[in-house]
Nucleic acid binder design. Structure first.
Length: 155
DNA sequence: GCCAACGTTGGC
DNA sequence: GCCAACGTTGGC
């Protein structure tokens, strides 16, 4: 069982959108490091934090589950699509996505500014300067530490 | 293979 | 809106 953190801009697709639809393809990732995790490492049943980026209060807003392991991202093949990439084709797909399923929205945002102050999170790429990775692994210790901040799940 | 230019990410 | 940091592109 692995743990992940996945970023999305709430203006584009936020935790409330995921709560509404239930399950959603996590598409449009166009970074090789993140692609490798989508394609090779993420497994059905893994858990992931949903992170809101590029917003007034960036931070972790909930959690989800990987509902389908990595498969080629079809929007890369669609010339009309925003995430079209002519260098990706069905015979040799360059980009991958997974499907994620909503699990819960946290009662409050676990903010980036707070996370940055926690020694337990010091090794997480999220809090490192200049980090732009949109998908990253979370250790089981970090996962438990963050979840311990959510009152409803304590006990 | 180097590296400058460029585009993007994402916090602030 | 600004801009630092970073990844990618393409000329050489």
């Amino acid at each position: 069982m692995n743990y992940w953190l996945m970023k999305s801009e709430p203006d584009v697709f936020g935790i409330d959108d995921l709560a509404r639809v239930g399950t959603e393809p996590w598409e449009g990732v166009r970074n090789y490091q993140a692609r490798n995790m989508l394609r090779d490492a993420m497994a059905v049943g893994d858990h992931a934090f949903f992170y809101h980026s590029n917003t007034a209060q960036p931070g972790i807003v909930g959690m989800m589950r990987i509902a389908r392991a990595g498969y080629p991202d079809p929007v890369a093949f669609d010339p009309e699509h925003r995430y079209y990439d002519p260098k990706s084709d069905p015979d040799n797909p360059r980009w991958y996505r997974v499907d994620v399923a909503f699990e819960r929205k946290f009662p409050q945002v676990i903010s980036l500014s707070w996370l940055k102050q926690q020694p337990e999170m010091a090794d997480c790429p999220l809090v490192k300067r200049g980090n732009r990775l949109s998908i990253m692994p979370i250790t089981s210790a970090q996962w438990a530490f963050v979840l311990a901040q959510v009152p409803e799940i304590k006990s």
